[in-house]
């Protein structure tokens, strides 16, 4: 079963309460997700919590879950938001964190806060420019023109399913899928149309 079933088939089994399918899904994806969270949280404990939380939700809501697009993209999107929630909780914690906070926090600001919106756009666009052309096009329509998946499909004269498939295909062709998944996450609506 490890190698035979794809993510969607695993998910179908998970829906039926198949714990073995759940374990395989976990084995397949936990490491990339953990690394993703660790890089942003710089804490083993918090990164573990985030990964746990994401898989926990999959199991708990297994019967209600209906995932259209790539499971990988779905997982990264979930971890993405869990990481931000964890950052929010850590930074907002009541613990006295000594002068380190006062001294080091201005840093987040000094790098990012001082960049203008134009600079930040440039920064993100630079990453986007490494994506395949079609994906860039979809990204730009979604992000800059505020198009929904449906509108993108109409604009590019494609079916909605094709827009989604293009994204998944592009994703799998990329050298560093994890990194690009992050970009995919920036695209509104695509995971949960």
């Amino acid at each position: 079963m490890e190698n035979v079933l794809d993510d969607h088939q695993l998910l179908d089994r998970i829906k039926e309460g198949d714990a073995e399918a759940f374990r395989i899904l976990f084995e397949r994806h936990w490491e990339g997700l953990y690394a993703f969270a660790w890089k942003r949280l710089k804490s083993r404990q918090d990164a573990e919590d985030v990964v746990q939380h994401v898989f926990m939700k999959i199991w708990e809501h297994r019967s209600a879950r209906n995932i259209q697009l790539s499971i990988q993209a779905y997982l990264y999107r979930s971890v993405y938001y869990e990481v931000i929630a964890a950052l929010k909780n850590i930074a907002g914690g009541s613990e006295e964190i000594s002068s380190v906070t006062e001294y080091t926090l201005p840093v987040f600001s000094s790098v990012l806060e001082k960049l203008s919106l134009a600079d930040l756009n440039e920064l993100i666009n630079k990453e986007v420019s490494n994506l395949p052309e079609r994906m860039q096009q979809i990204y730009k329509l979604s992000r800059e023109e505020d198009y929904s998946v449906k509108a993108i499909a109409e604009e590019l004269n494609l079916s909605e399913q094709t827009v989604k498939n293009q994204l998944t295909m592009a994703l799998s062709r990329l050298r560093k899928p994890v990194f690009e998944s992050v970009l995919l996450l920036l695209i509104k609506d695509l995971m949960f149309p």
Binding site: L41, K42, S43, Q45, D46, D49, L87, I90, A91, G93, E95, I97, V100, T101, Y103, T104, L105, P106, V107, F108, S110, V111
Partner: peptide, 25 residues
């Protein structure tokens, strides 16, 4: 979660950002 683990996590995160961000911004 024990409070000191969280504290350490924040500390590590902030130091990480500091090293990468502040000194070499």
């Amino acid at each position: 979660r024990s409070w000191w683990l969280r504290t350490a996590a924040v500390w590590v995160m902030l130091v990480g950002i500091t090293a990468a961000g502040f000194l070499f911004r």
